[in-house]
Amino acid sequence: MTTSRTVSSKQFSKSEQADKVLGLWFFIGAEIVLFGCLFGVYLTLNGQTRAGESPEQLFELKEIILSTFVLLSSSFTCAQALIGATQGQFNKTISFLIGTLLLALIFLGLEVHEFYSYVRDGHTFTSSPFMSSFYVLVGTHGMHVLVGCLWMIVLLVHLGKEKVSSYTSTKLEVFSLYWHFVDVVWVFIFTIVYLIGKAVVL
């Protein structure tokens, strides 16, 4: 009959790598629908405001453009980290990944600050359909950033243990796809929620 033994080496075969990347692309397809629906809900309900909390009164664009630049830069550093990994440059990879993590944390900090200032002014999750849909849309994106941060921490531990290998670079590639997608979603949140929300006053 069969003999069996357990193999345990830290590497992915070529086909495993391809599977993982393709799988994440499909995951992104599903996420597009998820965020599309959330945008739909937001656009349906953003008219249902109550006194003193309409988009153009609420949003502080200067803060938002800052976090936009921060997140866009993190996308850039993430791409650099991946380039480092494919070229086998450990230092480049790890420093750019740490950079990405820091930028992501700054973004999260800015978002928490933004939410905190709204809540402090009494615009909470339940105060109106507009606020609810705003928090759900932007908050879901924030959750994705948070998950990305945790993911990066795990990746850093992997990199520390395994250095740059086909194993870690596959993981990094999958992560970077996710991260660019999160960035793309932000481009739309920035445009549709903040810019157009602010521009409506014209």
Binding site: A30, E31, V33, L34, C37, L38, V41, L45, Q48, F125, T126, S128, P129, S132, S133, V136
Partner: peptide
């Protein structure tokens, strides 16, 4: 994903009193 969003909204409405 559309169901996910719908269920999320229903859950928030039921558990946290939002008004979707």
């Amino acid at each position: 994903p559309a169901l996910t969003v719908a269920l999320l909204l229903l859950m928030f409405d039921r558990l946290y009193g939002t008004n979707f």
